[in-house]
Amino acid sequence: MSTVLIIFYILSAITLSMAFLAVFTRNPIHSAIYLVVCMMSIGGHFLLFNSQFLAIVQIIVYAGAIMVLILYTIMLMDLNKEHEVHRPRVTRLVAIILFSLTCIILILIFINSDPVAGTIDRYDNFGEDFQSIKKLGKVLLNEYLVPFEYASILLLTAMIGAVLLSKKEKPGK
């Protein structure tokens, strides 16, 4: 086994176990912290692919911004007092069955469709640069300039919407 494979297995184990713990833990704050570790390990996967830009963005945006936002919301709501009621047993059973079904069906689809067949020679790197920040910036600002601008409009709209939604209404009105 090569070193890269061992690193991949360790990272995958961290990713999957942390995602599972984040879903299962009762305390929402612990759940958020497990999710931070999960996002960081996905950033590690990106680094393993040598896509430095996405690894950095993953850690800044997901593990940084989004999780801080979620943690602040949890603290704002003060959920520690009330204990979350479990769903009824039937619903939980259905959830577990659906989980296994999704897993099995998707994996079977991928096995049967066999995306690897026929293109095995594409594994080889021809030495051309396709994922450095320089190349990514050129693709982003040449071919995807319009969607890039739309993304900025989307973020602006989201910001205005979030401020409007979370503003307290005045009692007199």
Partner: peptide
């Protein structure tokens, strides 16, 4: 696929919206 299924499971299993 497994990670996605864990997400589906979490949506169906938990009641806490966060």
């Amino acid at each position: 696929v497994i990670l996605f299924s864990i997400g589906v499971f979490g949506v169906l299993y938990r009641r806490n919206a966060i």
